[in-house]
Every structure is written in C-alpha cells, then in structure tokens.
C-alpha cells in the first residue's frame, strides 16, 4: 500500500501550530541530536520525541514506530559499522579473527542508532503534523522563491505516484515471466533493466505533461497572491519561545561538555 503523504490528520496542538515554527523546531531538534554522543542523552531525546508526538500531536506510538520501521535496516547498518570499525580505544570484549569488538564502540553504536532515529523523528514530526501544501507555503513565506517551493511540492507529490508506477511496471514484467528473485547479484541487477527503462521513459513523459499543465495555469507570472495564508498567532510565539529555550539549554549543556563522551 502506497501512502500519498506522511501527514496524519488529528486535532492537536502540534497540528495547529504555524508550520514556520515547526520547521524551526525541526531544525533545532535535528541539530541537538548532533550535539551529544552519550547514549543516555540521545536516548532521552528519542523517547521524548515519541512521547511528545503522542501527547502534543495525538499520534499513537504504534503509528510512529510503524513509520520508523522501514528505516531499521539503515540504522542497523550504521550500528554494525560502529561496532566493527569504531574507535581504537577501549577494552576488547569479544574477538573473532581480526575483528575486535570493544565496549566503547558498543556504547557508541547505541548512541548513533538513537541519533539517527531521533534525527529521522525530528523530520517526521514536521511531516506527520503538517500538510504538504502548508509546508511549501511556509517555505515560500520564509522567502524561498516560489519556483523552488513548487519544485519541492511536486517532488513530494510525485514520490508515491512514481512508486505505484514502479509497481505496475514490475507487475507487467512479472506477467511476462520476469523472476526478480532468481540468479546471482549480477543477474539480478540486469533483471531491473526492463523495469527501469519504462520507469524512466514514463517519468520524462510525466514531467513534460506536468510542465504543460503548469504553463497553462499561468506559472511564472510575477506577484502571485495566495489562496491560503499563514497567520503567526500568540500560541505560535509561545511555542517558538519554548523551542528556542530548549535549544539554548542543549547548547549550554554541550558547551559544558555534558552528554559528550570522549573516545
């Protein structure tokens, strides 16, 4: 099943906040994840994010986890790399052939796992509680040229379209006897040619049609007006101040080297 957007419609504080404040909060959270490398600190940020999505965004924890699930292979890969190729310091707790597994590296692997997950969550927080058109509108209101805003909107809009196109093409080729599962790696790669060629051709066709559709609706005429507008209200100010205070506290902790492990 292909979802058209990550947005989940709920009536919550997070949903009602001005998307511009949410973009800033998202950036703050993302940056804070880089500040610390102590698994406890990053773990706290991670769980804080999941719980605040539940409390302030009314998004069920189960739902959040289901969005994180597809990212798991990526996270596991990062953790394995840290365990196998991390720091030279620390005590060896297990050794297979030349691979030494060290305690500090396990600690770092956990921290990095949480860091990636928390970074993903901080962007998901924005995407799950903000409609795409509001997101683009916010970027445009933040002085991003409209052309770029539209490009982002189109890119977001066409991810699921292209994904479902890829599924249709794969189905059509499977009906012609294509078996993707069989064969060694080289053969498998070769088997994707009959899927990639129609996909690329169709994407170009789609782009051309879209370009014409946009042109016919007077794209590029200067001084455009907006049907929807954003209003920065008092509660947005409160929200933004809270985000700034949170960021400053984290920055202070970082400067005082709390939550930072030396390896």
């Amino acid at each position: 099943m292909i979802r058209y957007t990550m947005f989940l419609r709920r009536r919550s504080i997070l949903h009602s906040i001005d998307p511009r404040s949410k973009i800033i909060l998202s950036l703050f959270l993302f940056t804070v994840c880089i500040f610390f490398n102590d698994p406890i600190y990053i773990g706290i940020i991670f769980f804080f994010l999941i719980i605040s999505l539940k409390i302030f965004g009314k998004i069920e924890i189960k739902k959040t986890l289901s969005f994180l699930k597809p990212m798991l292979p990526f996270v596991v890969m990062i953790m394995l790399l840290w365990i196998l190729l991390g720091s030279e310091k620390g005590n060896v707790i297990y050794q297979i052939w030349k691979l030494k597994i060290k305690d500090v590296n396990i600690e770092m692997a956990i921290a990095m796992g949480f860091r990636v997950l928390a970074m993903i969550l901080s962007t998901f927080l924005l995407l799950m509680t903000t409609e795409q058109r509001d997101l683009v509108l916010a970027l445009v209101k933040m002085k991003l040229p409209y052309e770029y805003g539209l490009t982002i909107a189109i890119a977001l809009r066409y991810v699921p379209t292209l994904a479902s196109l890829a599924v249709s093409i794969t189905d059509a080729q499977k009906a012609r006897g294509l078996e993707l599962e069989k064969g060694n790696i080289l053969e498998k790669i070769k088997k994707y040619v009959p899927i990639l060629v129609p996909l690329i051709v169709k994407s170009i066709q789609l782009a051309q049609e879209l370009a014409i559709a946009i042109e016919t609706r007077a794209f590029g005429k200067p001084n455009r007006t907006f049907y929807r507008d954003l209003k920065f209200k008092f509660k947005d100010l409160v929200f933004l101040s809270a985000a700034v205070i949170f960021f400053v506290i984290c920055l202070y902790l970082r400067i005082k080297r709390y939550g930072v492990l030396d390896i």
């Binding site: 196109l165 249709s168 093409i169 189905d171 059509a172 080729q173 009906a175 012609r176 040619v193 009959p194 899927i195 990639l196 060629v197 129609p198 051709v201 169709k202 066709q205």
Partner: peptide, 12 residues
C-alpha cells in the same frame, strides 16, 4: 497470459 492496460508500462 495477462495483457496489461498500458503498453508503455512494459516497453523497454
């Protein structure tokens, strides 16, 4: 044999 609706989806 299933002939799909859109021939462009399979020409490569």
């Amino acid at each position: 044999g299933f002939v799909f609706q859109n021939p462009d989806n399979q020409i490569f």
